[in-house]
Design a binder for these strands. Sequence first.
DNA 1: CCTCTTAAGAGAAATGATTTTCATTTTTTT
DNA 2: AAAAAAATGAAAATCATTTCTCTTAAGAGG
Lengths: 152, 152
Amino acid sequence: MKIDDDVRIRLKEKFEEFIKSKRMRQTPERFAILDKALDQHVHFDIDELYRDIEKEYRVCRATVYNTVELLCECNILRKHYLNENQAAYELADDRHLHLICMSCGSVREVRDEKFNQYFEQLKFKQFKPTFVSTNIYGICSQCSRKNHKDLN
Amino acid sequence: MKIDDDVRIRLKEKFEEFIKSKRMRQTPERFAILDKALDQHVHFDIDELYRDIEKEYRVCRATVYNTVELLCECNILRKHYLNENQAAYELADDRHLHLICMSCGSVREVRDEKFNQYFEQLKFKQFKPTFVSTNIYGICSQCSRKNHKDLN
DNA sequence: CCTCTTAAGAGAAATGATTTTCATTTTTTT
DNA sequence: AAAAAAATGAAAATCATTTCTCTTAAGAGG
């Protein structure tokens, strides 16, 4: 994600406050997981995060699951369901559409101000929205080309 | 879904043609599964569909999975990922947003012409879109009320 | 700083949706 | 009607995620 140091510090403080307000404990694991989560690509899954953490620390997969869940609760991360394999996580304030290839499973991010505007003005009866996850399924150019070749 | 008979017949023919074009076999199971899929609610999962089919026919879960996959390939159904438990399927031509409650998991459909217009004009470099799945996560009014009570 | 309480972590086992395997059945072709 | 091959059923396998139990260590109070 290439997070600026000041953002990183702000998010750490945010997490710290959240933990305190919930009367939970500030464990080194929790902060290590936050730190590594901020080093990931735009979207990542638990396994990618775990394999990255593993190089440096010794944490249990279940702890990674638990902590990432907390990071979602306190609005630092957001959980998306892009495909059936596993949940994908992203920084909460990075809004974009997902272009998902139904052939190879690749995911590309596209930012669009009009899209953000559209959603900001949306209001619902009887429903308080927190965030939007928009998945556009189709075929990426690489698979499209490959398919053409395969037919020859 | 409350499908009109003529739509039902058209979709059956569409599936029939798809099967023929792929040189696959027209089995009674496949048409029974299509028929029951069209009886479901706006969105349904394999388990719901299976339990409904089970009452009348004797089909294997794996066959339901396979056939629903085929129905997606031939553009009759679409596969959505609303939450981590299981995939949800919907009729391909019923476009809407999903309001998903993060507390109880309920899903509500909202149709919006502006949303359809927005997406129809979208163009992407190097990506051929097939369909859009928009999930809005938040808290439904029921859970919102319940939460308030719980705090008292 | 020390001790106690208990939340949190480790590791392993369990769960549940989906996929795979393989023997058997059934469709389609000849 | 018989042969060839695809599809089904049933059961086992897979894999992300959750749960369980035992152990460790954070944080409150002294």
